[in-house]
Amino acid sequence: MEMISENTKIDYLKRYQSLVKQFGFELADMKLEENQTGFIDAANAHADQCSPSTRRTYRAAIRYAFKHYYDIEVDGSLMKSDQSRTAVIQSKGKRTSALKAKKVDPETLQVLLTVLNQSRSKFAKLVKAVLVASTYFGLRPIEWTREVSIIEEWPDHYLKVKNAKHTQGRAFGAYRHLKLDMNFFDSDFEEAFKEACCLRDFFSKLDEQESKKWLTGARDFLNRLYRTDKQLKK
């Protein structure tokens, strides 16, 4: 099994316990071999009802839980399906998670940056940095808390990022490298690069728990802004 954080282990076990109930089993009886086999069959039967990302999440949780509880290695083909996300949405409709904004449109981003520049909150600077750098470079907020480094291999520069979803085979390798085109050095790149360096330096001084507290605080602060600031209300 690959190295995963303690928080991820806890999340996997909670997800597995939820799936046991969802698939109609009793957690106390899962130690019996016939129920383990039945559960795997039920998981595979549900595969076509899940989007690819949901299947990856379920697969990772089940594989970890079976190894943790029963010392059983579950094959990586668990819950494999050719069903696409679009096909699932067409058959099931949009799920709640699919209705959450995955990005900020340019107009809203500019309003938000203005509000953040006016804020006195200690989280304002962090939220701004994550928004600017993530919008430009495409990193998940959690990835800024991990290993991010800037590699200079003349004439190329790279942003080396530790993948957030590498555990249980959910990404192609532990790291990815984003090539930085230093010849295309416009104002947007300059601002994003500056914020990326700030985030790298900030989180490199914190441990995992401290980083998580800052990100949680930043998220809560951003949610409050959307609820209370007149410029962001629609």
Rank of each mutant, 00 (worst) to 15 (best):
M1K: 11
N7T: 09
R15N: 09
Q17D: 15
S18W: 03
S18R: 04
F23Y: 14
L27T: 12
M30K: 02
K31R: 05
E33M: 13
Q36D: 05
G38A: 08
I40Y: 03
N44D: 13
S53P: 02
S53F: 04
R55E: 11
T57G: 10
T57L: 01
A61E: 06
A61I: 10
I62R: 01
Y69F: 09
Y70F: 15
D71G: 02
D71A: 09
D71K: 07
G76K: 15
L78A: 03
K80P: 01
D82L: 12
Q90A: 07
K100E: 00
K102S: 07
V104R: 11
L109K: 09
L112S: 08
V115H: 10
S119D: 14
K122V: 10
F123E: 05
A124P: 07
L126V: 12
V130P: 03
L131H: 01
F137H: 05
F137G: 10
R140I: 02
E143K: 02
R146S: 10
V148T: 08
S149K: 07
I151D: 15
W154Y: 14
K165M: 06
G169C: 04
R170M: 15
N183E: 14
E195C: 00
C197E: 12
C197F: 11
F203N: 00
S204N: 14
S211V: 04
W214E: 14
Y226M: 06
L232T: 01
